[in-house]
Amino acid sequence: MRISAHMVCTAVRDDIVSGVFPPGARLTEELLARRYGVSRVPVREALRTLESEGFVTSRRHAGACVATPTEREAADLLDIRALLEPLGTARAARRRTEAQLRVLRGLVRLGQQRAARGQFSDLGALGDWYHETLAQASGSPTLASLLTQLRRKITWVYAAEPPERAVAVWREHGAVVDAVARGDAERAHALAGAHVERSIAVRREQRPVAARGGRRRTAVRTAKHPVNTARDGA
């Protein structure tokens, strides 16, 4: 089966966000092709896409490297989130489907249960699913794409919120979903805005991780790492 550039792009982006490739790391076509078990052609296309998204930069005589965002660029991400996320949530209150609402309610239930029990390992994935579903419920593919890309960048640039915030975070998510379920766009906008402001306040106390060049992992593994093809249809 031919591995698409989209699948390679997803794999490289995930490795950048998780810190496998730290800011400034070189991303040679040879290394990436070997790591994901693909030819150089989809790697080259993936790098072009990631450069357009701001995760990769090209340097003269050095080739493609993981971008190193400045602290101002990191702060801009939070400001943009404060504008876009409440807008998307208000639109979701007007346009969400019953199927999307069921998914949101299920995710909130699981998130609240895990947070209450101190089971934090699953909360990152649940939070990503929650935010992506809420963005899709806005009924605007462009806005949903922007929100998803923005969340990926914030996850890349900033450390995760402290675990002690988990119960409050999922309580806030529950209140947002209740407003979305009632079709109350004004309240959904206000609740999402308040949630984002609290999250931003926590993040502003941190110095952006990617902006200072440190990540959870700094050693780049070069062993073959086949692309997970199951993610392509997500």
Rank of each mutant, 00 (worst) to 15 (best):
T155P: 00
T49D: 08
G63M: 03
R182L: 12
D128S: 09
P42I: 06
E197Q: 14
V20I: 11
N228T: 13
L47D: 01
L150I: 09
S145G: 08
T142S: 14
L143Q: 11
S18L: 06
L107R: 02
L146W: 08
S52N: 10
H61T: 10
A168I: 03
R105G: 13
R182P: 05
E71I: 15
G124F: 08
A90W: 02
L50T: 06
R96V: 15
M1Q: 07
T70A: 00
S138P: 07
T10W: 01
R221Q: 11
A194E: 12
L47I: 05
R13M: 07
T70F: 01
A82S: 09
A159Q: 14
M1Y: 02
Q206P: 00
H189W: 15
R215N: 05
E29Y: 04
Q100S: 14
E161R: 09
A62M: 14
P163T: 09
T148G: 10
G174P: 06
A201S: 11
V108L: 02
R216N: 06
L123Y: 04
P208D: 12
L78M: 08
V196I: 12
R187C: 03
V56G: 11
Q149V: 13
S52H: 10
A188F: 11
R95I: 01
G106N: 05
A201M: 09
V202H: 10
R109F: 08
S18T: 12
C9P: 01
H189E: 15
P86K: 04
G24V: 05
Q119I: 07
S138A: 12
R44Y: 09
R96D: 02
Y36W: 04
Q206K: 08
V108Y: 03
L50R: 05
E73D: 13
P69G: 03
D128W: 12
R207I: 13
T89P: 00
V41E: 13
V12H: 00
E53L: 14
L83G: 08
I16N: 02
D76I: 03
D232G: 14
K224W: 03
A82T: 07
A46N: 06
S199Q: 05
P69S: 06
A179H: 11
R59P: 02
A115M: 01
I16D: 00
Y36M: 01
C9W: 02
A115E: 03
L83A: 15
V20W: 05
R207F: 11
A175F: 00
R215Y: 04
G124S: 10
T218F: 09
S145P: 01
D128Y: 12
G54C: 06
E29R: 15
L83Q: 13
P42R: 04
P23V: 09
V8A: 03
A159F: 01
L50E: 04
L31P: 00
P162R: 10
D184V: 08
G183V: 13
P163Y: 06
H173A: 10
V43K: 04
G174W: 05
D14A: 15
E85F: 13
Q112S: 11
A135S: 11
P86G: 04
F21P: 00
R102D: 15
E30M: 11
M7H: 03
A116Y: 02
V176R: 11
R72Q: 13
L126H: 05
Q113K: 13
V176A: 06
E51V: 08
D184H: 12
L87P: 00
P22L: 03
W156A: 03
A46H: 04
A188I: 09
A93Y: 02
G183H: 06
Y36S: 01
I80K: 02
R60K: 13
L77M: 09
E53D: 10
